[in-house]
Structure formats: structure tokens, C-alpha cells
Nucleic acid binder design. Structure first.
Lengths: 147, 147
DNA sequence: CTTCAATTCTTGAATATTCAATATTTTCAA
DNA sequence: TTGAAAATATTGAATATTCAAGAATTGAAG
């Protein structure tokens, strides 16, 4: 049982496909919740990372929120317009821009966090506590082993 | 241990984030392999689904390869230009279009399959046989429980 | 010190994706 | 049978993403 895929095995047995499928489904659900506040998932991630109150450079942020640099720049432009975050030039290295969350951003982030927590609780309900934490553990270790 | 995320837990503890991260990484690796043949991951998926030789409607395909309809239509347009697949109107329901893989498509698909198998083997090597099959099992069951 | 390579971020053009609307065919109720 | 609603696929405009190039700053070798 659970053999490695042969050349002609269905695509649904490939790890890459299962990950894509699971990611798509969970992301779709999360998107649905966050749309109550009209915010895309990526913006929630950005707010969440910045909510430690420290300044984060664009490069750091891009890694953390899984966006490449130009896409992040343009998304940050929108968020600055919405006064959720703001830019400050790094005094120690003036090539860098440090991003900070605004008060308005913090308020929004709290609301989004609770919507996201709702979702995780919903998953745990239907999928099980044990499975959820085991899945998280395995995903973390897969990510580790890929670096 | 392994508590559900609190409102202020780091984003890296959320299942949605771990899935996105793992998916991104594995997909990046697969993309890299398939780029040897100059083919995007989605086209490999399409070829693989069609390689059963049956005709598949666009809607069926879109579900199977995780693309929405207009995106699939445009990708299929390109693949038809490259003579990898072809369209046939469904004789039983003329609203539908049935997609088939061409001989050229089959040849390419074989090459892509072996590149993809290489990757899975590489994952199994560094991540472990046990973990891989356990992860697959958990992902399948997560997907199931989400429908 | 100077210059050249590397780092960081942004920009603009090219490309891809998505949303809404359209065309066609089928289904089904009246 | 007819006509309205549903299903299927495509199209075009709006939006978003990506690639390649550019601007600014830093690092570091000569």
C-alpha cells in the first residue's frame, strides 16, 4: 500500500497535486471568510507579520508572505493608500524600506485574526484535532527538509 | 502541545499558511524539472489527465487540473497551437467540447512523467518514505472532509 | 580613496488571470 | 410544443502578476 507513483499513476497520487488541491480548498475557504472585511489573504498575512510592531524590510516581508518583490511592492502601495501600513527608510541601510503597521491596520488585523481562527476551528471540527496537528507537524518537517 | 492558534499566534502556525508554503516549495521544484521541457506544471497536469485516451470536457478538465474555466480555455488554445491536444465537439451534448491528447502530446507526457517521478523520488529520499505516505494520506483525508 | 560588484527596492512592459457578459445547446415545466 | 431557465464554453475588458531593467546605496577589493 502507498507505493511511490509509477510513471502512469494518476495525477491525484502525486504529492505536488495533493498539496495544490488542499491548498486551493483551504485557501478558498479562508478567502471567503476574509472577504467579509474585503481583504485578500495576502494582505492579512502582511498585517499579521507586521503586527509585532517591528519594522520589516520589503525583502523580509516578501519571503514571509510568499510573494515576490514586485507583487509585494504593488500590494503595499494599495495598503499604504488604505492607510493600513506605512513606509520608513531604514536609517542603518538606506537601500532598505521598513514597513510598519498603522493603528488602523492593527484594528483590521484583529478582526481578520478572529475570522481566521474561526476557520481553523471549523477545520479542526470536521477534520479532527489529532489529524490537524499531525498534518501541521508533517508539513513543517517537509518544508524543513526542502531547504 | 500543538494547540489551536490563538488570535495572536504567528502566521507560521496556521494550517492555511503551512499548506501555502509547502505547496509553493514543492511546486517550485517541480516547475524547475519540467522547465527542462519548457512546459508549465498546469500543462503537465492536463496532459496527464488526458492520457487515459478518453475525451474530457472542459469543465471536467478545469476541475481536475485546478484551473478556472477561462484560464483553462486560453491554456488549451496554446496547447492546440503546439499540437499537444485537440478539441472535438461532444456528439451527445453539443454544448460540450471533448479534449483529447495527440500523439505528440503522449510523447511529451511520457518525458514529463519521468521528470515528475524523479522529483517524487527525491522528496522521498530526503523526507522519508513513511512521512511521505503519511502526509499523502492526511492530505487526501483533509480534502475529503472539506467537501 | 576609488571603482566595481552586490544588495535592495521600484518601475514599466509583457504576460497571465479573472470577472462579467455572450453565444450555444439542452432541459424541463407549463 | 414552446419558452424560460440551466449548463457549457468562450470572449473581451479589467485586473494582477511576472520579467527584465533601472536607480540608489552599500560593500569590498585593489
Amino acid at each position: 500500500m502507498a507505493k511511490p507513483p509509477k510513471e502512469n499513476s494518476p495525477i491525484t497520487e502525486h504529492l505536488a497535486y495533493l498539496l495544490a488541491q488542499a491548498n486551493r480548498e483551504i485557501n478558498r475557504q479562508l478567502e471567503l471568510r476574509l472577504s467579509k472585511e474585503g481583504v485578500p489573504v495576502e494582505q492579512w498575512r502582511i498585517l499579521k507579520v507586521l503586527s509585532d510592531g517591528d519594522g520589516h524590510s520589503m525583502g523580509e516581508l516578501a519571503d514571509a508572505v510568499l510573494l515576490n518583490h514586485p507583487t509585494l511592492t504593488k500590494m503595499i502601495d494599495r495598503m499604504v493608500s488604505d492607510a493600513l501600513v506605512y513606509r520608513v527608510q531604514d536609517p542603518n541601510d538606506r537601500r532598505k524600506v521598513l514597513m510598519f503597521i498603522s493603528d488602523r491596520g492593527k484594528v483590521l488585523c484583529k478582526k481578520l485574526n478572529s475570522l481566521a481562527v474561526d476557520q481553523e476551528e471549523h477545520i479542526v471540527e470536521s477534520y479532527g484535532d489529532k489529524s490537524t496537528s499531525e498534518l501541521k507537524r508533517l508539513l513543517e518537517s517537509l518544508i524543513d527538509s526542502s531547504n
